[in-house]
Design a binder for these strands. Structure first.
Lengths: 218, 218
DNA sequence: TTTATATTCTAGAAATCACTGGAATGTATT
DNA sequence: AATACATTCCAGTGATTTCTAGAATATAAA
């Protein structure tokens, strides 16, 4: 048996490899995007608003920590999370951050313009209402992300197409929009647009990854 | 409303503050120690085998990320985790690391000398056997850690005292020892000692923090 | 075969981090 | 009041990280 101290050092160093991945804001944003489904480097770069080169080097870190897998499809390389635990860990980390960091709580308050716009996280009753058709659950993310995974009973109208496709939505029922999660502004924008057009609309704070942690996504 | 990109940057930067804490091997070890209960700086330094100064500076990082709380008791300052979510996150991080990193799996194999020494993680049946008194669940951590929290039905004999207190243990029943978790060697040592002395002994891979994640610790 | 496209690799600059030693702070003991 | 003890703060050094720019690679299209 080797020196116990050396063995321990190896163990904690290995765990720290995972922690390191979650220590950079840009990488966190890439992970959140990958929680929405597999994406190419170019797409990730565009959606995270950073250069392709920088995206590639952050993805390299994710690869070296075995947290993503890649697959070449023609000219593009598609990245996806290695498994559901990675998405779960992202949710745990940002949830803990929201619990503990006042600065984050304050920044989040800036997003939710009116408090009434956000519905409480009572998943059971939302699910029930959605099943009965009392509310329309609206996924405003890009169509590919909806196809990769979406909440039960959700309909897809990407934010970009929402203005033209308003007619598809009923005015006599409450609309609940959601997007990638609490740091995504698409659902907020969707609600603002819908309310201006005379709809009853609120938005859901959580995205698919957050729901999955509670074991209710589809 | 401000520039959405700037708001997002603030959000991810804040979450990264939490991630950064988990990106250093020494800090991870300190967190694991704090999962066992509150401790002084000196104790943490000794148990993590690093200098008090370095311990203090790592604890400073934990404090600045609001993940620990401190309380002065006489000459000493006691550190404790801010809440259970911090311990849960540690468990999630090391579990993911064990899932994904071959290097970690290999290093862990070096610890568990004989595979039979470790019992499978069937918590229900262990609990049942412990309740009936068919097995003795033995906590070999220091007494303070046992007092802070321990598994149901567990008895405390710190590893240091085990040799002198062997008589307290029955030879006709199976003994299941546990310690701080999978990276702690105390339970392994305890089992080695017990087997040499003619006891039937195995060890539990998980510690209190790992059990708490499944909601079964006391 | 040439050209365009998507991605990675390499090198370098600026910022940050881990760690060490010395000084400072705050509490308990004498 | 003086001393000892536990802990933190500060300054400095070497290592690491983030990001940018240029070169290299691999595939698809012409």
């Amino acid at each position: 048996m080797e020196n116990p101290r050396k063995i321990k050092n190896v163990l904690y160093e290995q765990v720290a490899r995972i922690g390191k991945v979650f220590s950079s804001p840009k990488r966190l944003e890439l992970i959140e995007l990958l929680c929405q489904g597999e994406k190419t480097v170019e797409t990730l770069a565009r959606e995270a608003a950073i250069s392709v080169k920088l995206t590639s080097s952050h993805l390299r870190e994710l690869r070296m920590a075995q947290l993503v897998e890649t697959e070449r499809q023609g000219k593009n390389i598609h990245y996806r999370l290695a498994n559901q635990s990675v998405a779960n860990l992202w949710v745990q980390v940002h949830t803990l951050a929201e619990e503990r960091l006042v600065e984050l709580q304050l920044a989040l308050q800036k997003i939710a313009t009116q408090p009434d716009d956000m519905i409480p996280n009572d998943r059971e009753s939302l699910l029930k209402a959605a099943r009965k058709g009392e509310v329309v659950v609206l996924d405003v993310r890009p169509a590919e992300e909806y196809l990769a995974a979406h909440l039960p009973f959700a309909r897809s109208i990407p934010l970009e197409e929402l203005r033209q496709r308003l007619a598809e939505l009923p005015k006599d029922r409450s609309i609940v929009a959601y997007c990638r999660g609490p740091y995504c502004l698409m659902a907020v924008d969707a609600v603002a647009l819908l309310k201006k057009e005379g709809y009853t609309a609120r938005h859901l704070r959580d995205g698919v990854a957050e729901w999955a942690v509670s074991g209710k996504s589809k």
